[in-house]
Design a protein around this nucleic acid. Structure first.
Lengths: 161, 161
DNA sequence: GGTTATTGCTTGCATATGCACATATCGAGC
DNA sequence: GCTCGATATGTGCATATGCAAGCAATAACC
């Protein structure tokens, strides 16, 4: 196995390369569509995950599980949307170690106003991939996330088929 | 459509969220396996893409197409492996704007020695996803990359089916 | 062959990501 | 109620990623 065989094997088989490349391309598409909202795709995702919690609030640990994101990354990613006034960060009353992100009214509004822009990107991607391609990708990604340990609730219920 | 509906729609449908989450999880797996090699998954991918070129050299523009990576990102990602002595960066003799990354002997060696570690991650992922899950993911990602404009040669030939 | 448009890349700025380590808090035993 | 291990998070460091603006070299056009 010389270095050229190694390179060919990587190019042909590596799922890390593939998953990252696809994520980059898709993210650029969504980021472009979201430009008018002042949010990046990552930030909209984070806002949405927070909105899913009771009273529009989620403890960081839960966000970490839902998003499969390191808690240290989460700490910093929250700063941008906190600085923008979209969320506030408080402590849990029952466990003072736990920090809870809570949507502000501005956050709620931003989420609603951003959705149509998200949808433009979403529709554009569906057109690009085709109905079947999008469906296959969606399923394959969910299957992989489940296998790699995404939190229950972070995904739609498993297909009983 | 209130903010909660918006959040539920994002959680259920967003392919940007899904592709990024999966890429994160997979990358952590590969990075952990590659730790002993001193390379990150991204760097191994880059090294591999360079190795595929004639004489183990690729112009940056070509790398950008293969990897679907912004040229500005490429500039910086090359620095780490250049500093590590794994590649050299020169100019094309025929067009002095063009920069060409070329594998050094150390780069070739590193690629070969890293491959078994890559393979450990690869095998682990295949076990985790199952044969069918891995195959589905691989195909879906390649289909998406093709649709989103990956360079020919950056992917295996299209399935004639 | 000189002007202009295009191309290839770099830099400045901002966010995203993760690991190792440090800190604060909690819970279990004693 | 003190100690110790476990848990939740923050910080320092490093890389990854992309856009906008700039620079240098080439190509296109007249």
């Amino acid at each position: 196995m010389d270095h050229l065989d190694a390179a060919r094997l990587l190019a042909a088989e590596c799922l890390c390369f593939r998953s990252r490349r696809t994520a980059r391309a898709i993210t650029r598409l969504y980021d472009a569509a979201l430009r008018p909202t002042g949010l990046q795709a990552t930030q909209l995702t984070l806002l949405g995950a927070i909105a899913l919690g009771d009273d529009g609030a989620q403890p960081m640990g839960r966000l970490s599980d839902i998003l499969a994101l390191e808690i240290s990354t989460l700490t910093r990613n929250l700063r941008a949307i906190e600085a923008a006034g979209l969320v506030t960060i408080g402590r849990s009353p029952t466990d003072r170690r736990v920090r809870v992100a809570r949507l502000t009214d501005a956050g709620r509004t931003r989420l609603e106003t951003a959705l149509p822009h998200w949808n433009r990107a979403h529709e554009a991607l569906l057109r690009t991939l085709g109905e079947a391609g999008a469906e296959d990708l969606h399923k394959a990604l969910d299957t992989a996330s489940r296998a790699l340990g995404a939190a229950p609730g972070a995904l739609p219920p498993a297909d009983p088929a």
